[in-house]
Design a binder for these strands. Structure first.
Lengths: 235, 235
DNA sequence: AGATTTTTTGAAAACTTGATCGAAACAACC
DNA sequence: GGTTGTTTCGATCAAGTTTTCAAAAAATCT
């Protein structure tokens, strides 16, 4: 269950949002003052923060800055809720590190839809592909087997990445050349074989009985989907 | 350089946005019809899509659905631009897979700010970055190694700062030039090598076995995250 | 079982890439 | 306007990567 921190001083709006967000299945923790907001977030480690800008005791923009300065909280999406509708206010809010800026008065259901967008976005941007003991980190360009770093070359990496992002799908050598080598390639399709070989030497425990990469005689290769589970990125 | 596809039938708005986005350093590819939109995206592989909903020949919502169904295009952020302001329209757009929904008329600078939000990797705003013996003070523009001040030039500093704020992430020379040199650069990507070399001469104890800056052959460079720990800001 | 096709494999040749250096262009500062 | 330090570029070298070829092995078909 996703946890949301809500900082909003208007008691009516606060309870309206609390009611609606909880009805949608989110865990809601809130405060009607800005003072302890950063400590609250550090304690709760929410998945998203809804932040009013004009608070009686502090400035939401400062809280946003504070959150972006905290190493533990960097990366948590922040949505501003505010009556400040001017162009400069909007731009300032977004540039300070907010992920969305919603001007009051707003539709509650639109707010909920926008909240969901941020959770959806996190999933689709999965940067870490896990298949059993095999882990591929797309941002760090690293592959680990049983938590040991493997040394893959750029082409080996791209080939494995391509196959792992489409588990179960069989690709012809032709398709793999197009996808990994590019359309303007001038390469024999035997080259793919060699790369599959080398990948297997690096990732398969027993090269005669491959677990990860499956040869489909007459068609091509595919990444075994049975060994596959995707995890969301932690960073 | 980030590539944006713009689908918008209004010729005035189209050229206004094209002008402004290109001025911001984005590569812009566009179409004033919806017909070939998905093929255009498959060809161009943009980093973001700006999509009008009401097009003369097709429905932006259908294009959005089509993009979300394409395995190669899933995950590309889509921002709707539309005059349809009703609550149901907004919610429909967001639920169909859009990442943002901007109602016309809008401020061009707000649009640009929202576009940038999607490109901004969530990064630490911490003022003091510590990686083992290496310390970078962003406010004082100072770098210390084992508590000894290092003399870095401005470009060296910005490059190190950029890499240190995104530990573990691999960047291509292209990306580093965009980020550190700016988009109006006219510089070979070999220049990056030279700067990495000089940084290493200054910060690495043994230049043949770098601890801090990792070369990732075929991809680029990254700051080694294993050596990294962030300290809370003092301010 | 024998013939045929397809895949796997090893090894060597051709090619890229990244590190390094020196010198030229440039800018900033007095 | 000269001096200093910074930035960029092109060339070279070494190391590593990619590709091809051809032979061996395995699967499929008749």
């Amino acid at each position: 269950m996703k946890k949301i921190v809500l900082i909003e001083d208007d008691a009516d709006l606060f309870s309206l949002l609390k009611y609606n967000l909880e009805k949608e299945g989110f865990a809601l923790v809130g405060s009607q003052t800005g003072k302890g907001a950063i400590d609250l977030c550090r304690r709760e480690k929410p998945d998203l923060i809804l932040l009013d800008i004009m608070l009686p005791d502090s400035d939401g923009l400062d809280i946003c800055k504070g959150i972006r300065n905290h190493p533990e909280l960097v990366g948590i999406p922040i949505i501003f809720l505010t009556a400040r509708a001017s162009e400069t206010d909007r731009i300032l809010g977004l540039e300070l590190g907010a992920n969305d800026y919603i001007v009051k008065p707003f539709f509650v259901r639109e707010l909920i839809a926008r909240v969901k967008v941020h959770f959806r976005g996190q999933q689709s941007g999965a940067k870490l592909l896990k298949a059993g003991e095999l882990e591929l980190d797309r941002t760090a360009c690293r592959v680990k087997l049983q938590n040991e770093d493997l040394q893959l070359t750029a082409t080996e990496f791209r080939l494995l990445e391509f196959l792992m992002t489409r588990p179960g799908v069989v690709f012809s050598r032709e398709q793999l050349l197009d996808a990994v080598w590019g359309h303007d390639r001038a390469v024999t399709d035997r080259t793919v074989d060699v790369y599959i070989l080398r990948l297997r030497q690096k990732i398969e425990a027993d090269a005669t009985a491959p677990i990860f990469i499956r040869s489909v005689r007459g068609f091509g290769y595919s990444f075994n989907e049975s060994v596959f589970t995707t995890m969301a990125a932690t960073a």
